[in-house]
């Protein structure tokens, strides 16, 4: 089991001022070295594979402002759990099926009154071996070198 972290920074003040998450979400993940793209934007595409456990962490640009994830709409090949106890409150999902490129939606609670805002289609999940993957090799292409430099 390998862990993948998706870290989402939300500009809560911007979102409350304009009533939407547009231009207020900046996401990163820990798979950039395997081809994840869109880091720093609201259209992050994360490279995942079967067996991965994905955890989402969200925080505000302003440390006094509140933001949390309320709902997640994830594809069916993920086993999703909302971990909540006295010390933790976060979402995580395990890849149990074949990875098919998909976008997923998230609903946030923004600000002290927990205003609901939805980010859709938002982020996505892609299988390993995507063209952005440095280790990408296409067995159908005979000229690909062993190190996968040609892509």
């Amino acid at each position: 089991m390998h862990d993948v972290i998706v870290k989402i920074y939300v500009d809560v003040l911007e979102a409350l001022q304009h009533g939407s998450l547009s231009g207020a979400v900046f996401a990163f993940d820990s798979r950039s070295y395997r081809g994840s793209w869109g880091l720093g934007s609201d259209e992050l595409m994360t490279v995942v594979r079967p067996g991965d456990r994905i955890s989402w962490a969200v925080l505000s640009l302003e440390c006094e402002a509140f933001v949390n994830v309320r709902e997640m709409e994830l594809p069916g090949w993920l086993a999703v759990e909302h971990v909540r106890d006295a010390q933790r409150d976060y979402w995580r999902a395990t890849v149990v099926g074949e990875v098919v490129t998909a976008r997923y939606a998230m609903e946030f609670e923004i600000g002290r009154y927990g205003r609901r805002m939805r980010l859709a289609p938002g982020f996505g999940l892609v299988p390993m071996g995507s063209p952005g993957d440095p280790a990408y090799t296409d067995p159908a292409v005979a000229t690909v070198s062993a190190t996968g430099d040609d892509r």
Partner: peptide, 17 residues
């Protein structure tokens, strides 16, 4: 990217792949 957000009730098991 993988650090634990400090002080919030969302410490995640951030052992990265």
């Amino acid at each position: 990217v993988t650090s634990i957000p400090q002080g919030r009730p969302v410490p995640v098991p951030l052992t990265p792949d």
